[in-house]
Computed example of a mutant assay.
Amino acid sequence: MNNSWQRRAAAHPKAVEATTVALLFACTVASVLLTRSFMPGTPALWPGIALSAVGCAALPWRRGRPLYVLATATLCTMALGALGYLVTPGLMGPLLVAQYSTSVRTPRRTTWNSALAAAAGMVVTGVFVPSFLHSPVLTIVNPAAWVLLSAALGAYLRVRREYAAARAEHADRQREEEARRRVIQERMRIARELHDVVAHHLTLADAQAGTAAHLARTHPDQAFEIIAKLPETTAAALRELKATVGLLYQDDDTADLAPAPGLEQLPALVDTCSTVGLEVAVTVEGRPSPLSPVLDLTAYRIVQEALTNVTKHAATRTARVRLRYAPHQLTLTVTNGTNSGRPLVTSASGGGFGLLSMRERATAAGGTFHAGHRPQGGFEVACGLPLHRHDESPAT
């Protein structure tokens, strides 16, 4: 029933306003009649009713011009007191409503300045009431206190509304920041994928082309064999690039996109590296466990990036990949040859993104990452990834 009444009130605001003013005028007139019967000297009736009517008639403009309405209501109440009426809360109805509306709709300083001015007017009015010498509490303290109480209630409601608006704005900002953070994370993820695809395949293609050019005069058969495998490298790059960029088109049909690579493609990765003269030995320890798609992709990309950096930055032509399956962790270790000159990757000291990309992938999967020079020579990349069931997603 309460909701039904609120809907009706919202649908007929003018009728509600007129009813409210009429009821307030009736209460004010009743207070005029009641006060007149108890006051000595019997104040004039019709001027009291007229002043009450003027004060109530100004109230419909309290939302647009609250200070003018408050001034009108205050003057009417002071005039009633000057006529000899005892200024009671019922007689002050238009003033209290006007003061409350002013406190709700004006700043704090304006609220309290207007409240103090109205209270001062009530104090001055109390001097003209015949019972002033007998009851200063009724004629001075009581009217001023009601004005200040009305101002305090309006100010409280204004603060509550401002607080609710601030909370709503803060919640909107949080939602926007969360959405922005997710967009940035998605961009970072796609950027890592693009970096891994482009860096790996283009590095291998560049190495194949350089090797073929070097062998073209002395070993043409080997050069032609390497050149024949070059389209396979570029085709693989295009397939993975299409699959990665296809993530940006979620509304399109992605049935023809290649699936995300995983450790099952590790033999093909090793064969591709062998075409540029990098001999990779793969060792698997423990019983292989099924990996979730995200964790499988993470492990493959880390191995791929590490081998790519061996091809780009290491003087050695050999590398070793070790996969160790424990009950709750998969450990990936990629090392290049010993005593071979330059290290595996220069991301820590140069401007590349190899180490950064691998570290971010491992951290995003809830794992650990370490890369550095080995005491016996060479460079090592070690990564520990927590194992999950095939239907689980890695922790972030």
Rank of each mutant, 00 (worst) to 15 (best):
M1G: 15
Q6R: 15
R7C: 01
R8C: 09
K14M: 11
V16R: 14
E17K: 11
E17V: 14
A18C: 07
T19H: 02
L24F: 04
L24T: 13
F25M: 10
L33E: 07
R36E: 01
M39N: 08
G48T: 04
G48P: 01
L51I: 04
A58M: 05
R63P: 00
R63F: 02
L70N: 07
A73I: 03
C76Q: 06
M78K: 06
M78T: 12
L83K: 06
V87S: 12
T88F: 02
P94A: 09
P94W: 02
Q99D: 03
Q99K: 04
V104C: 14
P107R: 09
R108W: 03
T110V: 15
T111C: 07
N113C: 13
G121K: 11
V124M: 11
F128R: 06
P130R: 05
S131A: 10
V137C: 03
L138I: 04
A144Y: 09
A145Y: 05
L148V: 14
L149A: 15
A152R: 11
Y156D: 09
E162K: 09
R167I: 14
H170L: 12
Q174A: 10
R175M: 10
E178A: 14
R180S: 14
I184W: 05
E186G: 14
I190R: 13
A191H: 12
A191T: 10
D196C: 08
V197L: 07
A205L: 09
D206I: 06
H219I: 09
L230R: 01
T233V: 12
T234V: 13
A237F: 01
A237K: 07
R239T: 14
L241E: 10
T254F: 00
T254C: 13
A258Q: 06
A260K: 10
G262S: 14
L263E: 01
P267S: 08
V270R: 09
C273W: 00
S274T: 11
V280F: 02
A281G: 07
P288T: 02
P290S: 15
S292D: 14
R301W: 00
I302K: 07
Q304W: 02
E305G: 11
L307V: 10
T308S: 11
N309Q: 01
V310M: 00
V310A: 11
H313Q: 11
T318N: 03
T318L: 10
P327E: 08
P327W: 05
P327Q: 04
L332V: 10
T333L: 09
T335G: 02
N339D: 08
G341E: 03
S347P: 04
A348D: 15
G350F: 01
G350V: 12
T363Y: 04
G366K: 06
H370S: 15
R374T: 03
F379A: 03
A382H: 12
S393N: 10
A395V: 08
